[in-house]
């Protein structure tokens, strides 16, 4: 059974989620890829205000295709997360509690997740058409010049993800593979 959560997500709620949990997210999340992360971190370094409410935020690593008439958004699946590894610790420190992407994360990100209480969710890569159905509203709120890479505010409903790495550092990429391999021995 999937666990339903609401975004923004408090640190306390984030800490309750465990690696391997299926989760459905509803509420407000933000999109950002590497170019936007870079700008956010530059602002943070200068002590300036960010264009999104970072506290308790969930950030989705996605660059959607353009929406057609009548669609809230085009196809919108996750991009590979390791490109954000250099920036995520800063955002986690500032209050980010959830990240949605696909693929491995570096030790510096996992350390920040453990220290502050944040989770890394995986959405199914290559399922952008399916996932777009759970996005009800999308609005560019910053960096319009980045096109697909602009920061968007999304309203999502039962957006399906899996907890890949939890706030204790348990990792589904390691455990899932090990469990499967021992099941066929």
């Amino acid at each position: 059974m999937a666990i339903k959560i609401t975004a923004p997500l408090s640190r306390e709620e984030a800490r309750k989620l465990k690696s391997g949990d299926s989760v459905l997210i509803s509420g407000v999340i933000y999109t950002a890829r590497d170019a936007a992360h870079k700008r956010l971190c530059e602002l943070a370094d200068k002590g300036q205000e960010l264009p999104l409410d970072i506290k308790d935020s969930i950030i989705y690593y996605v660059g959607p295709t353009p929406a057609k008439e009548g669609q809230a958004i085009g196809s919108a699946g996750p991009t590979t997360s390791y490109r954000m590894d250099a920036y995520s610790p800063t955002l986690i420190r500032l209050g980010e509690t959830g990240m949605i992407g696909k693929g491995k994360r570096g030790p510096e990100v996992i350390a920040a997740m453990k220290e502050h209480g944040a989770v890394y969710f995986g959405a199914i890569g290559g399922c952008g058409a399916l996932l777009s159905k759970c996005i009800k509203k999308a609005e560019v709120i910053a960096y319009d010049d980045l096109g697909a890479e602009a920061i968007r505010r999304l309203e999502v409903e039962d957006f399906p993800v899996v907890v890949v790495i939890d706030s204790e550092g348990n990792n589904l990429y390691e455990k899932g593979k090990a469990d499967y391999l021992s099941s066929i021995k």
Binding site: K68, Q71, S75, G126, G128
Partner: peptide, 28 residues
């Protein structure tokens, strides 16, 4: 493997949606 079956089902569902709308299978 159960999880794997579920994901493959989603992947099938995804390309079926892409076919019928039609819309890009993947955002990249």
């Amino acid at each position: 493997w159960g999880t794997a079956q579920e994901i493959l089902d989603r992947i099938i569902e995804n390309y079926e949606i892409a076919d019928t709308v039609p819309q890009p299978i993947c955002q990249d």
